[in-house]
Amino acid sequence: MRVLIVDDEKLARDRLRELLSDIGGYTVIGEAMNGAEAVEKASELNPDVLLMDIRMPGMDGLEAAMHLMGMEHPPSVIFTTAYDQHALDAFDVNAVDYLLKPIRKDRLANALTKARKLTMRQIQEIHHARKDMPSRTHISVHLRGNIRLVPVPDIAYFLADSKYVVVRTATEEHLIEDSLVNLEKEFGERFLRIHRNALVATQFIKGIEKSPVGTWQVALRGVEKKLDVSRRHTAAVRRWARNRPAVAAAG
């Protein structure tokens, strides 16, 4: 089996390498120091299994596992963690295996033997089990079999388009399969609903203005396209603009 080791601590990665060498039958094809790097390397190297720490700076192991589920052939994931037993009660240990640090060789061998692929439902259950779980740091986009991670702070808006959602940054545009309802629930503090089909990142809003036909539009920094504000959302958008001195309302 081809193994990718993911941990922000070098000593922990070295320990896993030694244990895998002692067990035999496994090839370490790479290492990663955080969740984002794990997703990129997994997409490139196609490992059979990831040994992945849960708590890492930037993107943690749980978010990385959610992104990995989008691969055509997602790897198995075995979480490694320094959580105590009480904290582990929050996880469905029948659905996903985990190794409690310091990791023992017999425990690792057993976990690898029964390593199995996670389902999206299992990942989501684990994700929701953590009360302090932050929203995703990235949105995963699938391009020709590979995963492209788009940092959430780079996203100017989400725009519903048929069964897809357009993800727009200042320089790129991608399609994802998601719903605005879910995106609004997850990122509502960063985005403003201006239309039933549009969520706009508040940090990108330059101002609101009247269109030639008298409706309101949102002008964005670094993005030429202006987005329509629906009548239903006009009052809320103008109220938001009035409470933000940096945003100008013209006309």
Rank of each mutant, 00 (worst) to 15 (best):
M69R: 09
T171F: 04
S140N: 00
L88V: 14
K101S: 10
V166S: 11
P153T: 09
A160M: 02
A82T: 10
A129R: 04
L100D: 14
F158C: 02
N146R: 13
L149A: 05
D89R: 13
N146P: 06
D106A: 02
T171Q: 01
R136S: 02
V152M: 00
I147P: 01
H127E: 12
M71E: 14
T80Y: 03
S162W: 07
R144Q: 14
N146Q: 11
Q85E: 14
N110W: 13
D84C: 14
F79A: 05
R168D: 08
A170P: 01
E172N: 12
M133L: 13
L99D: 00
P74C: 12
H127I: 12
L100V: 12
E72N: 08
T169H: 03
A109D: 08
A115C: 02
A156G: 07
V96H: 01
D132I: 07
T137G: 05
V96W: 00
V167H: 07
T80D: 10
R168A: 11
D154P: 07
H127M: 14
P153M: 00
A87E: 15
H138A: 00
H128E: 15
S162K: 14
L159R: 07
D84I: 04
L118Q: 08
P102A: 06
P134S: 06
R121F: 00
S76G: 13
K131A: 15
Y157T: 14
P134E: 10
T169V: 05
D132W: 08
Y83I: 15
V150N: 04
F91Q: 05
R107H: 13
V165Y: 15
K105G: 11
Q85Y: 07
D84H: 09
M71N: 06
D92L: 01
S162G: 06
A129T: 10
H138K: 03
K114W: 12
L118C: 05
